[in-house]
Design a protein around this nucleic acid. Structure first.
Lengths: 216, 216
DNA sequence: TAGATTGTTAATCGATTAACAATC
DNA sequence: TAGATTGTTAATCGATTAACAATC
């Protein structure tokens, strides 16, 4: 039986990425981990760990726990990061530069294969670490036909966000990591995840004040 | 009656930041907005909008809706961004550079007032846009006493994350925006919000594949 | 006053957790 | 086999929503 969109909550997927990170740390020290140990690190219950994983199959060994290496492979496969995923980057401002000069931030399974910008002063410039030249946003249309990419990172200015998104969607992009603060409109078969550092800071600020004003 | 930590879910606060962003866009065109209009933009119900806001008070006018300018002020006050919040930045790598060279990403109410790094090649260097010099992480102790800051942005390497956090906590930092992938351990009265771009991409990748494999 | 939309209650839905039979 | 921990069911908890009285 195949899993459908509604069988899975976004919270489960967010936790999966955290499990993965913890498992990568743990594998240096241990071969197995059980749901109780993992739940302590995650600040949750062992039941939640087991239930989350059981959404996707049976991966544990009763009486023993989970084989860490194995569980890493499984989660990587679930998230689709057991392979190299090609992505394009649209907008080479400060955020874009950070992403092209620091391959580490995206993680090892994501590779930027093209960078687009609309500024004439940037187009044609070489990005040394990636060995590619910045192309004109105008060329997205003709370019995306040649390479087989379905994921884009959007780091243009807010005013261009929807315009560029429409071009991306037209060119069969199915996933957009949105660094703009614009609420993108996309068809149902296009996934969008927003990254909003300012909003994260606002959240932090709220909780910080709340904790300060009453100690827990 | 004062609100306690448990009266408020993190989901409400996350939505508040989104309401704020939408309201800022809307204020150019309209004076009032009602819960039904806002819910359509937010892809939710009008009941959720009204309930979220009513957590903090009564801000609407029956029969009319919400005064946009007024609601912006209210939400900004709730989030504590109706004033300038001083923050320090620890770790001036690629992420740190992006944050100091692009004041826009943090939003207008957050100001970086000190930058620390442990690399001798960076310490002492001037950050032009901010008019401050990078200081040695070793000096956090003596320095934080002088300035009155309770928020830090952590963008050091993973291996240094907990060590630096312990120093920050000792120096009365109460909020940490964590760009490392390390799961920080902090006392109960210190708030932490994680920013993990790689995890966001993993999430996106999952949903993208899910939508692709079955159209909706 | 009539119409509209809020703020809030009660009902529903979904997510978390406790508990335990299954099984390594 | 005895001990431990999984996978899953049923109970609980919390968040969302429908519905409506209050009121602008």
């Amino acid at each position: 039986m195949k899993l459908k969109r509604d069988d899975i909550s976004d919270r489960v997927i967010q936790r999966l990425t955290k499990y993965l990170s913890i498992l990568h740390d743990m594998k240096k020290y241990e071969e197995y981990i059980n749901s109780s140990e993992l739940s302590k690190i995650m600040n949750t219950t062992s039941a939640q760990i087991r239930r989350d994983l059981s959404t996707f199959g049976e991966f544990g060994i009763r009486g023993k726990g989970y084989d860490i290496e194995n569980l890493i492979s499984i989660i990587e496969r679930i998230l689709g990061i057991d392979r190299i995923n090609k992505v394009i980057l649209v907008g080479h401002g400060k955020v874009g530069e950070m992403l092209t000069s620091n391959t580490e931030v995206l993680g090892k399974s994501f590779n930027i294969v093209e960078v687009f910008d609309k500024s004439p002063s940037k187009v044609g410039k070489e990005i040394k670490d990636l060995n590619i030249k910045i192309k004109d946003i105008k060329d997205i249309d003709s370019d995306l036909g040649k390479i087989n990419v379905d994921t884009a990172i959007l780091s243009v200015i807010k005013e261009q966000a929807q315009i560029v998104t429409d071009i991306l969607v037209k060119n069969h992009i199915k996933g957009i990591l949105n660094f703009t603060t614009y609420k993108l409109e996309t068809p149902d078969d296009v996934a969008v995840v927003d990254v909003n550092i300012s909003a994260n800071l606002q959240e932090l600020n709220f909780w910080k004040d709340m904790l300060k004003n009453k100690g827990e």
